[in-house]
Amino acid sequence: MSEHYDVIVIGAGVTGLSSAWWLARDGRSVLVLDKGVVGAEASSRNGGGASHYQSPLFAEEQRLWPMMDDLLGYPTEHQRERVIISVNQREFDHYNYIADMCTAMGWPADKIDGDTARAMVPIAGDNCLGGIHLRFGGHANPQRTVQAYAWALQDLGGRVIQHCPVIGIETVGGQVSAVTTPRGRFTCGALVVAAGPQIAGLLAPLGIEVPLMAGRAEMIVTEPAPLMRLGGVDGNGLYGRQTMRGNLAFGGGPHEWIDTQPEGPRARPTTPLSRSLARRVAEMFPRAAHLNVIRSWAGIVESTPDGRPILDRLDNLVIATMSGVGFGLSPATGHAVRDLVVDGTCSFTDIAKLSLARFAGLAPDWRETAGWLPLAAA
């Protein structure tokens, strides 16, 4: 097989699919390649939050999410607003600080006492000191959203090939010209690399060093609880949501750092994290502590040394690694990638702080210094 596309996207996670969809909307011929299936890693296995107020992409995230069902033509189950509740004084003080910061930025956030929090979150207990009510942000269903991006892309003529890892990137005169796969060679006018932890291995042969560490992010899902008015609730070191069936789906680290090969992690290691997550969910929601955990999810996420995304263009190559916050920012990230590919710069915000150049001179042992070691080594 040998075909030409205006843009090839490596990675069928939420960032790659959103980028491809935005490019297809612009009339570009787009091919998405993935070593596995659409959204197989963290893109479909996360808390679904869309409230990244510390990102330069935040305003665009907030503008777009309420429109995404109509724009995509498929449901994402997006719901607006979130509540963050505290079960100790340290959390209470920190969340009040967040409320002041958001309000100063022009995003309304109410400070709430314990009684108000329990009225908004009926499964919270007497240990709830209060918290904050974010009148912005929200959450969506990760699996539904990934499917929506993929279907909407195909509706626009975009193509997705699953189980098709990229095994080589070709360049001519310093620009990407083609990628090779077990299914053939595909030529392109531009390349977007949104392959999560595999980005580093894919780009290293081109002399591009992208500092990333892979981690296993896990979530638990409980039996259904009575539906709450606002299903997006954070606290006690947890993030997550109540599904439309009532299940509580929550995660919150710590990450289990793992080694990754260029083709991706070879196995999903076991982890003791489920018990910790279940305990913290029960502490945050004492009136739901009787619910059984019925399943767990896990996905591989990547993180940069400073925990912030990398969105950058090098010639006709765009790097997009979101460092664990890809889902909620995906509508805005796709827009930014479209701008980088087509116009060379982001049209709606300044993303200079997300450039790869900020890691120039990074010490080779940064993983060891940070303590980000695989479990066996640690």
Score class of each variant (00 low, 15 high):
Tyr239His: 14
Arg268Ala: 08
Gly237Phe: 06
Arg245Gln: 14
Gly237Ile: 09
Leu238Asp: 12
Ser274Ala: 14
Trp257His: 11
Gly252Thr: 10
Leu248Lys: 02
Gln261Met: 08
Asn236Gln: 09
Glu256Gly: 11
Thr271Met: 00
Ala278Lys: 14
Ala249Lys: 09
Thr270Cys: 01
Leu277Cys: 14
Arg268His: 03
Ser276Glu: 06
Gly240Gln: 08
Asp259Glu: 15
Arg280Phe: 12
Gly264Asp: 10
Arg245Lys: 15
Ala278Phe: 05
Ile258Arg: 04
Thr260Pro: 00
Pro272Met: 12
Thr243Asn: 02
Ala249Tyr: 07
Arg245Ser: 15
Leu273Gly: 06
Asp234Glu: 15
Arg241Pro: 03
Arg275Thr: 15
Tyr239Glu: 05
Gly235His: 10
Asn236Ile: 01
Gln261Ile: 01
Arg279Ala: 15
Ala249Gln: 12
Thr260Gln: 02
Arg279Asp: 15
Pro265Glu: 09
Trp257Pro: 03
Pro262Asn: 07
Leu277Phe: 08
Arg275Pro: 03
Thr260Ile: 01
Thr243His: 02
Gly252Ser: 11
Thr270Ser: 05
Asp259Trp: 09
Gln261Ser: 11
Met244Pro: 04
Thr271Leu: 04
Asn247Thr: 09
Asp234Pro: 04
Ser276Pro: 00
Ser274Leu: 14
Asn247Ala: 08
Glu263Ile: 11
Asn236Tyr: 02
Gln242Arg: 03
Ser276Val: 06
Leu248His: 04
Ser276Asp: 10
Leu248Ser: 07
Arg275Gln: 14
Glu256Asn: 10
Leu248Tyr: 02
Glu256Arg: 07
Arg280Met: 12
Thr260Ser: 11
Gln242Ala: 05
Leu273Glu: 13
Glu263Ala: 13
Gly240Cys: 12
Arg245Glu: 15
Arg275Gly: 13
Pro254Gly: 05
Pro265Gln: 03
Asn236Pro: 05
Gly264Arg: 04
Leu273Asn: 15
Leu248Gln: 03
Asn247Phe: 00
Phe250Val: 13
Ala267Asn: 07
Gly235Ser: 11
Pro269Lys: 00
Thr270Tyr: 03
Ala267Ser: 12
Arg279Gln: 13
Thr260Leu: 00
Arg275Ala: 15
Asn247Leu: 02
Leu277Arg: 06
Tyr239Pro: 04
Gly252Asn: 08
Thr260Glu: 02
His255Met: 15
Thr260Lys: 00
Asn247Tyr: 00
Glu256Cys: 02
Gly235Leu: 11
Gln261Tyr: 04
Arg245Ile: 08
Tyr239Gly: 11
Ala249Ile: 12
Leu248Gly: 07
Thr260Gly: 01
Gly252Gln: 08
Glu263Thr: 08
Arg241Ser: 10
Gly237Asp: 09
Gly235Thr: 12
Arg241Ala: 06
Ile258Ala: 04
Glu256Leu: 12
Gly251Arg: 06
Ser276Cys: 01
Ser274Asp: 14
Arg268Val: 13
Arg280Leu: 13
Pro262Ala: 10
Ala278Gly: 09
Leu277Ala: 14
Pro265Cys: 13
Ser276Tyr: 00
Thr243Phe: 01
Pro254Leu: 07
Thr271Trp: 02
Leu238Ile: 10
Ile258Met: 07
